[in-house]
Structure formats: C-alpha cells, structure tokens
C-alpha cells in the first residue's frame, strides 16, 4: 500500500453511506491502520447528498497527526452509490483516481418542473477518467438478494476485491453480517460471489 490512501463514499439520504463508512472505518482501525474519517450527512432526511471521507496514512512523520479531510485533487478511491453523486466531488479527483460507480440514477427533483435535464453522468465520467468501474449494483443486489438495500455492501466488497481498500473480503463480510444481522443464506450468496 502506498503511504496515503484517501477514500470517499458518496450517496443519497445517508443509510447506505453511513453503514459502509462505519464498517470500513471500524475494520481499518481494528486492523491497526492509522485511519481517520468523517461523515457529512446534510440536512435532508431523504435524497440529500451525503458523503463520507476515510483517510489511511502510513507515514512515520505524520503518525496520527493528520486530519480526516481529504485535500482537493488527492482522492484515491471513490465509491459512488448513485451515478450523479459520482460527479459531485470531482474537485477531489486526480486523473488516476479509482472510481467505482453504481449505474443507477436518481433524478433531480427540480427537473420535474423546471424542464431542465442534467448531462449523462456515466458518459461524463467515461470521457474524463480511465480507472473507472461502472456496474448496475441495484440490479445485482436485486438479483442476488432480492433487495436493493445491499448495494453498499456489494460495492464495498467490489472495492475490496479490487485491492483498493486494504481489508480482507471475509473480514468485511463478517462485519457486515454483524452490523446488519444478515441471514446466513445471504452470507453464502455473497461469499460465493467473491469465491470465498
């Protein structure tokens, strides 16, 4: 692992971001990483932009002396639970940022009465970034587990599988099972998905 890894989880409303953030941050700290994080929930109960930052620093000089805030242009990993939200934090990206994006779009409400359309987020991302994985995790979650509520867990797992986050997949699944009280069958399906 390089000396610093900055991770941003973006989504809407909060529950998905909050759960994934809490699982990852706990595992990183338990694994002995020097890791700090912060979550920004916004004022909205539903469909407001929510994001969490996690910084892992392996640097003798900095030790624990770093802030949880990611500087602009220094994001290493983005996990976007919604496609438009993948564009929102672009000030943090650099050309090599790894982007994991859920190909699911939640329209903007003002488009309903202002007759305004937003540009296609996926096309925009594909134009500017190379290290990009786009997948419809909503459908994947529905197909595997018959619920859309597991999108965050599947995306966290995918980022770990890509070695973007220094956590063992089995540790992640164990933590997810504890946090969400997942049924044993769901665990089996997810373990099969990652070939454990």
């Amino acid at each position: 692992m390089k000396e610093e890894r900055n991770i941003l989880i973006a989504g809407l409303g909060g529950q998905g971001v909050n759960t994934l953030y809490a699982i990852l941050q706990s595992l990183l700290l338990k694994a002995g990483f020097s890791s700090k994080g912060a979550i920004f929930k916004g004022g909205a109960q539903k469909r407001g932009s929510v994001y969490a930052m996690i910084r892992i620093v392996k640097d003798g000089t900095l030790e624990n002396h770093f802030s949880p805030m990611i500087p602009e242009g220094q994001l290493d990993v983005l996990i976007a639970l919604e496609a438009y939200e993948a564009l929102r934090y672009s000030r943090f990206y650099h050309p090599q940022t790894s982007l994991l994006v859920n190909n699911h779009r939640v329209p903007f409400f003002n488009e309903r009465y202002q007759k305004k359309t937003s540009p296609d987020p996926i096309k925009t991302l594909q134009t500017h970034f190379k290290n990009l994985i786009i997948q419809d995790f909503n459908s994947l979650s529905m197909n595997l587990l018959e619920t859309r509520k597991m999108v965050n867990i599947l995306m966290g797992l995918a980022a770990i599988e890509q070695k973007w986050i220094p956590i063992e997949p089995t540790d992640f699944l164990d933590a997810a099972q504890q946090k969400l009280s997942l049924p044993y069958n769901d665990m089996l399906i997810l373990m099969k998905e990652i070939n454990v």
Partner: peptide, 8 residues
C-alpha cells in the same frame, strides 16, 4: 461538472 445541488 455541472451537478445540481440536491436540496432534499
């Protein structure tokens, strides 16, 4: 990028 603010 032009991304609308989601005001909830």
């Amino acid at each position: 990028f032009d991304v609308e603010e989601r005001l909830g």
